[in-house]
């Protein structure tokens, strides 16, 4: 009802307000992203490499899918990269977010020293991922690292480089970033603290306490944030680059989508912009899929939960 009134009486003001408030962001988007997005999509259908760097050339309708064919069928690292990146996206959502939530809940309780721990916990996230890559390279070093001695406790005589073992290398790389959930925790904690007091009081009257209160009251209240951080965690997992660059350079089956794009566009002396942008299109589409999936999952699970509550 109220909405109608606004639309009627203050239509022009409302429109003007919306436009004015959106304008800066949309301008930034237009100058910074719109052109690249259009270029990426268009040139993924072009022959565009070192021979014609200034003038991308449309493949024509007959050969429209040429780049895609190359990437899907010929390029050796694409599927491996897509598999890894998807796995990292999934791990971001199912490992990082629950861990971050648990820690955020712990941080929200009043315990001595919790503030100090909270402040310490965010510090690793202030170190750039490049620097973290370098640190973990040292930790994983087979001669001097700290990981091999631990393995040797269980498997005497183990002297391989875990970053070169197919399988373990993937997990080693995962461990190099996945537990540093400082920023995610911060986002969740901020929202937990914003849950209104009276809501909690009501919960206590119902006899909900501790974990129960968290599960039935706090978490549903912050589901919007959980959804957002799930998207962010999955996204950053999907876009993993620095860890690959510093730890393995793709050896032992650890290519990622971002790494592949750079290999094609920059490392290759043949400067294959067209093909790199084909992978970029896949990256953008995959990102959309991630977002839709997470949105879907959250709306389904919460519907169920609500029914369960009653």
């Amino acid at each position: 009802m109220e909405k109608k009134k606004r639309a009627g009486g203050l239509g022009w003001r409302r429109k003007g307000f919306i436009l004015a408030f959106l304008a800066p962001t949309l301008t930034a988007f237009a100058i910074f992203y719109l052109y690249p997005i259009v270029t990426v999509i268009f040139t993924s259908f072009c022959k565009w490499d070192y021979t014609n760097i200034k003038t991308p050339q449309f493949w024509g309708w007959d050969e429209l899918w040429d780049n895609y064919q190359y990437i899907f069928q010929t390029y050796p690292y694409f599927w491996e990269a897509l598999r890894n990146s998807s796995a990292w996206a999934l791990l971001g959502a199912v490992v990082q977010v629950p861990v971050a939530t648990l820690i955020a809940l712990a941080f929200s309780r009043k315990i001595k020293g919790v503030r100090t721990i909270r402040n310490i916990y965010i510090i690793p996230n202030m170190i750039s991922t490049a620097a973290m890559g370098m640190i973990f390279l040292q930790l994983y070093s087979p001669l001097y690292g700290v990981v091999n001695p631990v393995i040797r406790l269980f498997n005497k005589g183990f002297d391989e480089n875990i970053l070169l073992l197919k399988g373990p290398a993937f997990w080693a790389m995962t461990c190099a970033y996945i537990f540093f959930t400082g920023t995610t925790t911060l986002l969740i904690l901020g929202n937990i603290m914003a849950v209104p007091e009276d809501v909690r009081e009501a919960a206590v009257l119902d006899g909900a306490d501790g974990l129960k209160q968290d599960w039935y009251i706090t978490l549903p209240m912050i589901k919007g944030t959980l959804k957002t951080v799930s998207v962010l965690a999955a996204t950053s997992g999907f876009l993993l680059y620095n860890e690959v660059y510093f730890l393995t350079k793709g050896a032992a089956g650890t290519y990622s989508i971002s790494y592949v794009i750079r290999e094609l566009a920059i490392t290759s002396p043949r400067t294959q912009f067209g093909r790199a942008n084909t992978v970029a299109v896949v990256q953008i589409l995959a990102g959309m899929v991630i977002i839709v999936l997470i949105n879907g999952l959250y709306s389904i699970s919460w519907k169920k939960k609500k029914e369960g509550c009653r």
């Binding site: 391989e160 480089n161 070169l164 197919k166 793709g250 032992a252 290999e263 490392t267």
Partner: peptide, 19 residues
């Protein structure tokens, strides 16, 4: 041969180093 080729060969050799 190009940096990407060199990288691919190094990766292959490194993987072969695993017994």
């Amino acid at each position: 041969w190009g940096g990407d080729v060199g990288n691919a060969i190094i990766n292959a050799l490194m993987e072969c180093a695993v017994s």
